[in-house]
Nucleic acid binder design. Structure first.
Lengths: 230, 230
DNA sequence: ACAAAAGTGTTAGGCCTACACCCATGA
DNA sequence: TCATGGGTGTAGGCCTAACACTTTTGT
């Protein structure tokens, strides 16, 4: 009994954070999962996450767990929902504060603690531990809402990208198709994109224009928000 | 020590829910606060809320506390954020899952347990207990987002209302002014409103037209969502 | 008389959508 | 040579925003 050294007058649930990490490979959206090494659900895939410490906020916890389990540092995380079903963990009552994060896939080094981390696209995702299927569904819809209010390309795309890649990103997230020309016009109107390289005089038209984000404008719009209609 | 009969291997925070209740009196948005009868912050105003029980979800907890402290039954509640600052409660580590709810002010009977519940408009709100100021600010911004995606009048207005009241509601929530004629056109285009009463032949133009919501359309739009640009 | 509330319609500009052709390349 | 990817512009419709006058009533 010595082991159970934290005592309370009323029962307390355990509290965890979990973080749904989205990436983009130029074609489709990916989610980073960790294969669990311990019970419960040993061997199942799950989101990185873990127990809240008494001296850290949930944001700090989410970032710490993210780094510990995937090696990703300094990634901004967005809280989107807290899951509280009574039986979501077989060990004891656990509620989890769920976050999502957007990362450039290149930034995940395969080498870390996270030899057991892997990117999955939506249609490959296995059955997940706990209620993580439900968490994923809610994360996906939070991401859809988010994309309509704030630019997200900078967080998911490489520094230099083509208009097609940007369009693929939006199409992958929102699961709808756009007219190529209209998408181009809409994006250019935002004033967010800069042509990344002078194209040589006789660049063949087959080679796409490369863009980068205007960082000032990007930051401004990210703070102020905008409204994209789709 | 017998009193502290819940034992855990690792420390657990306490978990509460709090509920920001919005109302509307035809002119401005109001928030329902409870005057605390016990320490800490005894005498201060705060949102209704309380500790999560081990056999209930956070949604159930929020509704239960809402009923216990204000008498409001069967009010849908919307989770919008979980607050986890380390020192937000002086007693012990407490995290709170925050909700908001929309109610018709008439439905709050003054008589209940809640003789110490009172409506405040934004500019009357006193300094609140805990970090409830911060919770309020976030609730207000969650409400602003919500109003752009789902109709909310039905939850806040009496059954029968005038176009001015509806406009006042939107203006109060979004804190901006609309052109009366444009607002009218926009609302009528949604197909959500029904004229509530046949106006007699010679109704003087000074008496406003009364509307009610088309409940089918209202439910449809609430589920499907829409996009209102302001 | 005057202020305040309510009813009502038009116009111009901007945004969205739909849509087609040309060029270059790789198969 | 054919399919594919990429660059580019326009016309119509819809929505938005700006805007004024009349009626009635309460003070």
């Amino acid at each position: 009994m010595e082991e159970f050294k934290y005592h309370y007058k009323y029962p307390h649930p355990a509290v965890t954070t979990d973080c749904v990490i989205f990436g983009f490979d130029g074609v489709s959206i990916k989610v980073l999962l960790i294969q669990r090494g311990i019970e419960p659900f040993k061997g199942s895939w799950a989101f990185p996450g873990g127990f809240l410490k008494m001296d850290e906020t949930a944001d700090e916890c989410a970032k710490r767990e993210l780094e510990e389990e995937t090696g990703l540092k300094n990634i901004p995380v967005d809280q989107f929902y807290t899951f509280t079903s009574v039986d979501r963990d077989p060990r004891e009552r656990v509620i989890t504060i769920a976050y999502f994060a957007l990362v450039r896939m290149g930034e995940v080094k395969g080498g870390d603690d996270a030899s057991n981390a892997r990117w999955f696209s939506y249609d490959e995702i296995p059955s997940l531990a706990f209620d993580h299927d439900r968490i994923l569904r809610k994360a996906v819809s939070a991401l859809k809402i988010r994309i309509c209010f704030k630019p997200i390309g900078f967080d998911l795309l490489p520094e230099i990208f083509t208009m097609s890649e940007l369009q693929n990103l939006y199409e992958a997230i929102l699961e709808i198709k756009f007219d190529r020309r209209n998408f181009y016009n809409k994006m250019m109107k935002l004033g967010l994109l800069i042509e990344a390289e002078k194209r040589p005089e006789n660049t063949p038209s087959r080679i796409p224009v490369k863009y980068r984000f205007n960082p000032d404008k990007y930051t401004e719009l990210k703070q102020k928000g905008f409204r994209l209609e789709f």
